[in-house]
């Protein structure tokens, strides 16, 4: 009990110190608006990727349509903000909730039929859902002109700042942690390891999968909502299947079933893409894609379990821990 409070305390202090550090660096200009933007984007990716981490990393449900849920969140939150944007921070919270709930709801509705599918077949079904969302967003202006259809949506208030992004990310990390180490989270992990066995020991597998999927999609929607308030323009092409692959890459490279891995990799990934601009310079701009691909291949060859391979930072793990979660991943 004593140790548990200790850990929570450690985490709170760590977060506050990190926040103060970042805040000081931003106000003094050590982090200029450019790196600030990259930092913000990395936090958005973190939130979205934690969602996929729950769906795939912890519950083992292969989803290739994650970006579509980010897009649904971004569009619904952006639309809400455009319509009710005059109430400042309150309407921003409203927008984020709307994005989260809408993406979660869509996740729930699509999850009910498709979560009966297994592995690659589920992947294809969610990929297909991604295509459906793209078509819907492309033609959305015929029903709601403000969404802009293929021309994209402008005019979402750019209100997201360090406080919003940092503390939302923090809350999401804590929420995810609590979920994963709860009874439900344990049930999710048991499904990932062996669905039949989980069923045998009395886990309601379908309900659990659906819950994890809905939760994961809601986080994607939250990420999308933040995205819409960090970037002044959103269009359907931002949430296509290649972006879904990006989230998958982050989760797998981080290590399946590792929150720490997802968070660190998401941040590293966002900084990598921008950092390559500096490493390569103006002469080699067109090598960025090639180098990125090579880094991807080499990383997975060197760390096939992902960078963190199912391990967690100590402070993210509650005290009681019966078994290493990565044991069965090696199979």
């Amino acid at each position: 009990m004593f140790q548990k409070t200790n850990k929570m305390l450690l985490m709170v202090i760590g977060a506050v110190v990190l926040y103060v550090l970042l805040k000081i660096m931003i106000t003094t200009g050590v982090i200029n608006p450019y790196w600030q933007r990259v930092l913000f984007y990395s936090l958005i990716v973190t939130i979205g990727a934690l969602g996929l981490g729950i769906i795939y990393g912890f519950t083992g449900q292969f989803s290739l349509g994650h970006a579509a849920f980010v897009g649904l969140g971004a569009y619904s939150a952006g639309y809400f903000s455009k319509t009710f944007g005059q109430y400042g921070g309150l309407s921003f919270i409203g927008a984020l909730l709307v994005g989260m709930v809408f993406a979660g709801l869509m996740g729930f509705l699509i999850g009910v039929p498709v979560l009966r599918l297994k592995s690659d077949y589920l992947g294809i079904a969610t990929l297909g859902f991604g295509f459906i969302v793209k078509v819907a967003l492309d033609n959305a202006d015929k029903i709601i002109p403000e969404l802009g259809g293929a021309r994209g949506m402008v005019g979402t208030p750019q209100v997201a700042n360090l406080e919003w992004l940092f503390f939302t990310a923090l809350i999401v990390i804590v929420l995810t942690r609590n979920f994963i180490f709860s009874t439900y989270g344990r049930a999710c992990t048991s499904i990932r390891e062996d669905e039949t066995a989980a069923d045998m020991i009395g886990v309601n597998t379908f309900k659990t999968k659906l819950m994890a999927f809905t939760f994961g999609c809601a986080l994607a929607g939250l990420g999308g909502g933040l995205y819409a308030h960090t970037y002044p323009f959103i269009c359907p092409g931002d949430f296509y299947f290649l972006q879904s692959f990006d989230y998958l890459i982050v989760v797998v490279l981080g290590g399946l079933g590792s929150m720490t891995g997802t968070v660190v990799t998401a941040i590293g990934w966002a900084f990598l893409l921008e950092g390559l601009r500096f490493v390569l310079g103006p002469q080699f701009v067109d090598f960025r894609g090639v180098i990125y691909a090579l880094i991807l291949i080499i990383t997975i060859l060197v760390r096939r379990q992902g960078i963190f391979g199912g391990k967690e930072f100590g402070f993210l793990v509650p005290q009681v821990r019966r078994e290493k979660p990565d044991a069965a991943l090696r199979g």
Partner: peptide
């Protein structure tokens, strides 16, 4: 003999590599 997903990520990497590589001048 790694999890199947690792090879899939590697395949995505190879795919990007071939696309971006062959579009070099």
């Amino acid at each position: 003999y790694a999890p199947k997903i690792a090879a899939l990520i590697s395949a995505i990497g190879v795919s990007f590599f071939l696309e971006y590589g062959s579009s070099l001048k």
